[in-house]
């Protein structure tokens, strides 16, 4: 039997909103250690890696490892039926055809059950090596979302250039160009407002706005975002999910023809 309970559905609601633009379906790998999802978007340009540790759940039971293929569009619709304060329980039996979502109101006066059919999926699983990145930028997630949105007006791609002076985001198009520079913050009262740059070597990479604007849908999950970059390898855009796990997006850089 598989059963996982979160005291507040808000986290799971935000996770679904953070992946639904990129993934229409995905396999949820459930084991003793928690729930993991690794899936490429339909165009196979980006990769989503989600990790929810079992110890972050209020209750977690997984008697045997399960791979459950879920329709993300349907799952998003179901999670939208939960109030943020509702308790959410995911339940499935061994060799399941279905998964059940149970939402319980804080007063326990409302109990809603939604059953979703699982799908059979053949998925490529990619091995992501541990990488030392040339630049790691930590910055407020809302600021990153704002920059992606603002620069998307000027072109289809955003160039991120990171040096010891700071990080520069720029976009160029037929009607003009724009660039936004962020310096490392010297001192901040609140850690979540800090811009922190860990640079070994300067990096300049260009990424498609379309994907960056999908990644920033994870902004409600965490006040800070971590961008890890090295020349000629995919960007890693990471958001912590409270004390329970993280979501990482990998995006292939644009390269000169």
């Amino acid at each position: 039997m598989f059963e996982a309970r979160l005291a507040q559905s808000a986290i799971l609601k935000k996770v679904l909103e953070a992946v639904k633009d990129l993934l229409s379906e995905a396999t949820f790998e459930c084991s003793d250690s928690g729930i993991m999802v690794q899936a490429m978007d339909n165009a196979h340009v980006s990769l989503v890696s989600l990790n929810l540790r079992s110890d972050g759940f209020d209750k977690f039971r997984c008697d045997r490892n399960l791979s459950m293929g879920m329709n993300i569009t349907t799952m998003t619709k179901i999670l939208r039926c939960a109030s943020s304060e509702d308790t959410v329980t995911l339940r499935a039996w061994d060799n399941p055809d279905n998964i059940i979502f149970i939402f319980e109101s804080p007063s326990k006066e409302k109990l809603a059950e939604y059953e979703m059919k699982l799908i059979n999926m053949d998925q490529e699983h990619l091995g992501i090596p541990e990488t030392m990145y040339s630049c790691v930028v930590k910055m407020p997630s809302a600021e990153f979302a704002r920059i992606c949105k603002d620069l998307s007006q000027f072109g289809e791609a955003i160039t991120i250039a990171c040096s010891k002076e700071g990080v520069k985001f720029s976009a160029a198009g037929d009607y003009g160009n724009a660039n936004i520079k962020l310096a490392q913050t010297a001192e901040v009262d609140k850690e979540e407002e800090a811009v922190c740059i860990d640079m070994q070597e300067p990096v300049k990479l260009t990424f498609a706005c379309r994907y960056l604007n999908s990644f920033v849908k994870a902004t409600p999950l965490c006040a800070q975002v971590k961008l890890s970059m090295s020349a000629d390898v995919p960007l890693v855009c990471e958001y912590s999910i409270g004390e329970i796990g993280h979501i990482r997006y990998y995006l292939a850089p644009k390269i000169d023809d």
């Binding site: 490429m40 196979h44 990619l126 091995g127």
Partner: peptide, 14 residues
């Protein structure tokens, strides 16, 4: 111009 390789060309298929 710029182009883009698929993400799987950067990571090995398990």
């Amino acid at each position: 111009g710029k182009s883009q390789k698929g993400i799987s060309s950067y990571f090995k298929v398990k």
